[in-house]
């Protein structure tokens, strides 16, 4: 089950840097999609591997069960 309070706290921090976080459960997996707003600070987003760890802790899930999408993934058509 997603700890909405912790996720919302992370989302608020991300929003300060111009990013939006959306976390959804998909069966046994969790999807975390981070999108960049027009004023997003490119260097301010933690590397994806670190985000995986942070989300794994916040969600109490194994990092391998979290599908993370970063803004660069979308721009590359992934």
């Amino acid at each position: 089950m997603i700890d909405t309070e912790r996720i919302e706290a992370l989302a608020t921090s991300l929003a300060t840097d111009g990013y939006h976080l959306e976390v959804t459960e998909r069966g046994s997996r969790v999807s975390a999609v981070i999108t960049a707003g027009p004023e997003a600070c490119e260097d301010c987003l933690v590397p994806k591997d670190f985000m995986r760890g942070i989300l794994a802790n916040a969600l109490g899930a194994d990092g391998e069960e979290i599908d993370i999408t970063y803004p660069a993934d979308n721009s590359e058509g992934n």
Binding site: D49, G53, A56, N57, G60, A61, G63, E64
Partner: peptide, 11 residues
């Protein structure tokens, strides 16, 4: 420690 924290067990 695990530099990526890929698993929750890292904590």
């Amino acid at each position: 420690l695990d530099p990526t924290g890929t698993t929750a067990k890292a904590t």
